[in-house]
């Protein structure tokens, strides 16, 4: 018994913390000094009365032409992404289906749209009317090998916007298909089996069990895609869609303030990207439910923890 009591830790008064002279790290100081000096000189270059001409940037930042272009970029991004995600889910489910024809069709789609440049695809859709006989460029839409039901004029329906939308969303569909497929196959087979053993059907299992869990894997790369999409809308400038790059370069073609207008455009791209960040943060929190034992850390907690020493997950 005496031996045992020696082994058990006895609660006593708290021992004193160790006080030791910390290791000197002159390298850290030198590195920090170099970085600070470089940054300071760069900031001085930016704000000095140099060629930057900040007033020009301020003047064009809220120019009505530029603002219209920002709104167009926003809509084009949201619509293309929406269509891209829907296409992606359909293609991913096709790719994972037991039907070999669906599987092959999905594979071929992804092969083509991922394997050719986006720029080429946008220009292709813009010029698609060339494939339909002049002078009216009618597209026959109807039953394959059967009667056509409607005959729209390609030149009329393929506007600059439609061409840009088609190029961006069809391309996005191919990338999203792979992201969604990765999400679906990340859900353990036991989940599907448990749901099947409860008598759930294939569609029910997909909708209630697999996709909600796959979202956790799908969301982060989709945030990436959204940000890429935002910037890829600039490619629509080559077919004359009045988005940010098109409008700002149009202005600078007249006043030669090329750098200033590029910065105006960049500021707006950054602003739009920030919106995407916030959206992604809240979505990820929502689909992360039930996957971590730790309580979810909110932005507010994180800022509060700055004042509380270590903070972060290790400090919890």
């Amino acid at each position: 018994m005496a031996d045992q009591s020696q082994l058990t830790p006895v609660a006593s008064e708290r021992p004193q913390d160790i006080r030791a002279v910390p290791v000197r790290r002159p390298g850290r100081w030198i590195a920090a000094f170099i970085v600070l000096a470089c940054s300071a000189s760069f900031v001085r270059f930016l704000i000095a009365d140099s060629a930057m001409q900040w007033h020009v940037i301020g003047q064009y930042l809220f120019d009505s032409q530029v603002l219209n272009a920002v709104v167009r970029v926003f809509y084009l991004t949201v619509l293309s992404m929406l269509i891209g995600v829907i296409l992606g889910v359909i293609l991913a489910v096709m790719r994972l289906s037991p039907n070999p024809i669906l599987k092959a069709a999905s594979w071929l789609y992804i092969f083509f749209f991922r394997g050719t440049p986006l720029l080429v695809q946008i220009v292709f859709w813009y010029n698609i009317s060339a494939l339909f006989p002049a002078p009216h460029h009618l597209i026959d839409i109807g039953i394959p090998f059967g009667p056509a039901l409607i005959h729209p004029n390609a030149n009329v329906i393929i506007t600059v916007f439609v061409a840009a939308l088609a190029g961006l969303s069809f391309n996005e569909g191919a990338y999203m298909a792979e992201i969604v497929r990765a999400g679906i196959i990340s859900v353990p087979e036991g989940q599907t089996e448990a749901a099947a053993s409860l008598g759930m059907g294939r569609m029910q299992i997909m909708r209630r069990i697999v996709l909600p869990q796959a979202m956790r894997v799908i969301l982060p790369p989709t945030g990436n895609e959204l940000i890429s999409m935002l910037k890829n809308t600039s490619l629509a400038s080559v077919i004359g869609y009045a988005e940010i790059v098109y409008v700002t370069s149009d202005i600078s073609a007249v006043n030669y303030k090329v750098i200033q207008l590029l910065i105006v455009g960049s500021i707006w791209y950054l602003a739009l990207t920030s919106v995407a960040y916030v959206g992604q943060y809240f979505l990820e929190r929502r689909v992360g439910q039930g996957f971590s034992r730790a309580q979810q850390i909110t932005i507010k907690d994180r800022w509060l923890s700055l004042g509380r020493g270590r903070g972060g997950t290790l400090g919890r």
């Binding site: 053993s197 008598g199 059907g201 869990q213 039930g290």
Partner: peptide, 23 residues
Amino acid sequence: ERDVARKRQEIGMVFQSFNLFPH
């Protein structure tokens, strides 16, 4: 598949790894 699912409704199954739905 529909009919297989209907029959499974009447048979409960418990797995080694629980397979609860985590979400």
